[in-house]
Amino acid sequence: MTALHEQGAGQQESVRIGLAATGLSKAFGGVRAVHDATVAFHHGKINALIGPNGSGKTTFFNCVTGMIKPDSGTVTYYGADITGKAPHRIARAGVGRSFQLCRIFPRMTALENVLAAVRPPSKTRLLASAHHHGDVARARELLSRVGIEHLEGAEARALSYGQQKLLELAGVLMADPDTIMLDEPAGGVNPALIERIAGLVRSLNAEGKTFIVVEHNMELVMSLSDHVVVFDRGSQISEGPPSVVQNDPRVLEAYLGV
């Protein structure tokens, strides 16, 4: 136990905070979806955000990425206040995200889905062809990285759910974010694909991407993440390395619903 603590302390010294929230709250009518949440995610790490169903994880994601305006509290990204900023501004600041129920552009091809995330170098380049050579090459590279390059010409709605999840990830990567927020990447997909997604997250993390992953698959969370934040009833009840969080009585209580 002491060894663990020391290890924790040693880590803390080198920890740099990327995305963080202070006193963040959001209520829907009487439902306090997120309530006074204070959270800090570690730069360069694979952070996990876990918690029982309805504990406010998705709402937290939405508040942080500007999809929903929080009622109170602040969100910072590497120290800069991004509270209530428009989603595209937060995206352009370097935060990419996926959605819990996988969102893609159904009537566009897989390749176009990825190309849609291109950030033109300047406004004047907006009228340049979407099928710009460099962009297409990069989009194909990403499609092949997630393993669906053979489907580039298919309409996204024709892909299987697992393929759509991979496509969504490729789109997120096209925008070249520094921080990638995934809402249940393993939800509704088979074990083999979960492994593929986990492998992608690991290799992208090795290349310097910071991850914040909401996930219910505990085995995956424990094997994948460096830092775990636990939510219950809209706020953080525990945080730390997976091994520590796993044995935290408050976490067990939240999950067992005592």
Partner: peptide, 12 residues
């Protein structure tokens, strides 16, 4: 196709 998704990808 999906306005929120487009915005989340950084499209103004």
């Amino acid at each position: 196709e999906d306005e929120d998704k487009a915005q989340a990808l950084g499209i103004p």
